[in-house]
Design a protein around this nucleic acid. Sequence first.
RNA 1: GUGAGUGUAGCUCAGUUGGUUAGAGCAUCGGGUUGUGGUUCCGAGGGUCGUGGGUUCGAGCCCCAUCAUUCACCCCA
Length: 402
Amino acid sequence: MINPLRGMKDTIDEASQRYTYFIENCSRIAKNYGFSFIETPILEETALFKRSVGESSDIVGKEMYQFIDKGGNDVCMRPEGTAGVVRAFISAKFDKAGGVKRFFYHGPMFRYERPQKGRLRQFHQFGAETFGEYSIKEDAMIILMLQEIFDFFGIKTKLLLNSLGCKECMPPYREKLVKFLDKTEGLCEDCLRRKETNPIRVLDCKNETCQNLLQNAPMLSENLCESCQSDFSELKTILDRFDVSYEVDTKLVRGLDYYNKTAFEFISDEIGAQSAIAGGGRYDRLVEFLDGKPTAGIGFAMGVERLLDLIQMPNTLREGFYICALCEEASEKVMELVIKKRKSNVVHTNYEAKSLKAHLKAADKSGVKEFVCIGEDELKNGQVWIKNLETKEERTLAFEQF
RNA sequence: GUGAGUGUAGCUCAGUUGGUUAGAGCAUCGGGUUGUGGUUCCGAGGGUCGUGGGUUCGAGCCCCAUCAUUCACCCCA
């Protein structure tokens, strides 16, 4: 027997119902916020991810499904969605056209990691990106939209918020931090490595001794430039005004290199060690890193699998018909009615002529609302016999009227 | 890549200090004389006990290896 590869799952049965329910409603909400659907290739040139996600990230360093294709191209299955959308934006020359563009996307992402709860090798993200809008109001709008999505599905979350600064204030801060770390003795091995690759990450080390050593470390929030500072406080004001609760977490860092200014993460304590269910922020420099005309960018991504366990599904209503034959002679008529009814209804059927009891059982299980059968009597009278499985009400109808 | 746990029927799991023919519930299918489901009663099918080696008169149970899976670390959605 051939099993799916490690960390890859089939979306089937109940899971597929949850998946489509989730995607459909996220899409609906995103459209209300002015976003339109975009689909980009799963396979891209490896260079795209190296330049956008950043070489320092573990994603690029060791988690990419990267290979040389038959034409000798260095290609990679996308580990995240933003890079491809930005690439598509530039490929369509929307950067030169100017104006504001909003896109949402969903689909599979690939990272070669050891699977665990809430982590797969092939997983799905739903995300959205806005281009060409520098206003902090857009940051707020995107957070509001996520909050609306979580509210709709009945998911309890906590919002963590931070500002990472911009090209003016971030580099000096980083230097300050590294200087501080250099004269700090006793950091754990991981932190010593992080100091080289992504010093900001040291701040959220889970090691207790590291946290004690970091108590006097320079804080990012106290080193923001004036415009970052005022944008950040305006963002908080808007969130307050529209009743979105948040927690400022000065240690919050995004895992990907392209973020600046606003960074946020929605977390849940109900899904195991992987608590982040959505993350996002601003990436005003990414378009130009990828050879486009400088264009503001901001977006987010949600981890679909992490969310599916948490969403409350509505009660499924009975729908459609189950049409069947009680005797062999009725089979032809049944098929005719099935085909006719399927033009505008959900219709289940069973090709075998069986006892009423057996058919009723099957109809009940298929979740239809009305049971329709033709037996000897009905065939003789040119009628169908109908039973409503909810109300138990029974009636007959002439073939033509059904 | 590192560490720990778990592999017995389609699913969830029992299975004694190693001892005859490996069990249950759910699910599936069939029946309970005339055409009434979700909620009754009876019955049936379904297992190379993850795989390979070893110890033993004898292994689902003990030992070794291997594979799969789960959780955690790292990192991330």
